[in-house]
Amino acid sequence: MTEDLKVLHVINIGGYGGAEKLLLQLLPALNQQMVADCLILYKEDNPEAALKIASELRDRKIEVYIYSYRKLLQGSIRKAIRNYAIQGKYDLVHGHLKQADFWLSILKKRGQLKIPVVSTMHGYNDAYENKYGFVIKKSLFFSPYYLVSRSIFRQLDGFILISNIVSEFFNRSGLLPRVSQKVIPHGYDTELIPEVKASLRSLQPRIAIPGRLIRRKGHLYAIEAVRQLKAFFPGITLHIYGDGPERQTLENKVRSEGLDNTVIFHGYVHDLLMSLRDMDVILIPSLWEGFGLVFLDAFAAGVPVVAFDLPAGNEIIRHGYNGLLATPYSSDSLVENIQLLMNDDLLRQKISMAARQELIAVFNMRSMTKAYTEFYKTVLSNYKKNNRQS
């Protein structure tokens, strides 16, 4: 441990998504630089994901506290957060996701938590983003959700934003106050990177699309692309990794297209990376992403990526260098780019190698933890300065 800092990370867990996956890699890395403990809250009738993540964090030597509740608004939640923060003598609290921000903002507003609080901005609101992505519409400013969110954020002391598009959205919309902010992309534990497998042309290409089964992940575009590709590669298969509310819709689509033997639903798999490295192409046709850890999984697997030319994927992928970008919302363009990769061994290997090198050089956990540490210090310094002035 090199820094005399104690940070309590607070998160409400109801499932397994990008924020939860990030914590599993981030906290062990931070814990080598400082004390990085975690308070996990979860609803009593939905404990599975929370307890699983708590167990995985403990396996990685993280101090984990657990608190269950019945209703989001019950006052005992805030009391528990306050008690853990005070008794642990933490210098700073880091909230993850909207429920944690809500509870922490009330504690700050009431003067019951007298240490700085920062939050990571992963995205805004699924209902809005499913319609508009990160485009700011006039209707945004009249939404009760916007007004409540803006009020919550006014109580916090700093914000980490996971991509440039997320930063642009939150600042142009006026959601965030004028306090410390920093764009810090996700890092990746490079020790998890497996050896590269030989990438040879296949007459039966295996295409993977990893991610939660929700509309914005663009699974329908992938299914349509594979339907077209069967004319060129009769033995092609599409492997869908993940689960979610759109599964039934996607299964119905597969049946209606007669693709039952072509599209395989694997559900959630624990060791996704080892599954991905057996693929020929990884397809990420997301309609929008705050960041997209799945891009880094693909880089680590050593498999070339085809994605839509949309945020924040186009902040990570540089077309023709570390991946290919297709025309947004076009299955035809996905087909063209997949064919390009499948017909050119040299291009596929060049892209895979460049992506892996960029993962190691740019998106590594060392760079991320350094940026977090510097940001925490800035927030603490500003907080102490403001308190002296007041």
Results as ranks from 00 to 15, higher is better:
residue 9 H to W: 08
residue 14 G to N: 10
residue 16 Y to R: 14
residue 16 Y to F: 15
residue 20 E to L: 06
residue 25 Q to S: 15
residue 27 L to G: 02
residue 29 A to E: 10
residue 30 L to F: 09
residue 36 A to M: 06
residue 36 A to L: 01
residue 38 C to Y: 06
residue 39 L to I: 06
residue 40 I to P: 10
residue 43 K to D: 01
residue 44 E to W: 09
residue 47 P to M: 02
residue 54 A to W: 12
residue 55 S to K: 15
residue 56 E to H: 07
residue 57 L to G: 05
residue 59 D to V: 07
residue 60 R to Y: 01
residue 65 Y to R: 13
residue 67 Y to R: 13
residue 68 S to R: 15
residue 73 L to D: 14
residue 74 Q to W: 10
residue 77 I to V: 14
residue 78 R to I: 11
residue 78 R to C: 12
residue 82 R to Q: 15
residue 89 K to M: 12
residue 95 G to A: 15
residue 102 F to N: 01
residue 103 W to Y: 10
residue 113 L to Y: 11
residue 118 V to A: 05
residue 123 G to N: 14
residue 129 E to L: 10
residue 130 N to Y: 09
residue 130 N to H: 04
residue 131 K to N: 10
residue 141 F to Q: 11
residue 142 F to C: 10
residue 147 L to C: 12
residue 147 L to F: 11
residue 155 Q to I: 05
residue 156 L to R: 01
residue 172 R to P: 00
residue 187 G to N: 05
residue 188 Y to M: 05
residue 191 E to W: 07
residue 198 A to V: 14
residue 206 R to V: 14
residue 208 A to M: 09
residue 209 I to P: 00
residue 215 R to C: 03
residue 216 R to D: 03
residue 218 G to R: 00
residue 222 A to Y: 00
residue 228 Q to H: 12
residue 230 K to L: 11
residue 234 P to C: 00
residue 240 I to Q: 03
residue 248 Q to I: 13
residue 252 N to I: 10
residue 254 V to L: 04
residue 256 S to T: 01
residue 260 D to A: 06
residue 268 Y to N: 12
residue 269 V to P: 04
residue 269 V to A: 04
residue 269 V to E: 05
residue 270 H to S: 14
residue 276 L to E: 00
residue 279 M to D: 10
residue 284 I to D: 00
residue 284 I to V: 09
residue 284 I to C: 11
residue 290 G to W: 00
residue 290 G to D: 04
residue 293 L to E: 04
residue 296 L to M: 12
residue 297 D to V: 07
residue 297 D to Y: 05
residue 298 A to I: 05
residue 303 V to I: 15
residue 309 D to S: 06
residue 317 I to Y: 03
residue 319 H to P: 04
residue 322 N to A: 11
residue 323 G to N: 07
residue 329 Y to T: 13
residue 332 D to I: 09
residue 335 V to P: 03
residue 338 I to M: 14
residue 341 L to Y: 06
residue 343 N to D: 13
residue 344 D to H: 15
residue 344 D to I: 12
residue 346 L to S: 14
residue 347 L to P: 03
residue 353 M to R: 14
residue 354 A to H: 14
residue 368 M to C: 13
residue 374 E to Y: 06
residue 375 F to D: 04
residue 378 T to A: 14
residue 380 L to G: 06
residue 381 S to Y: 13
residue 388 R to Q: 09
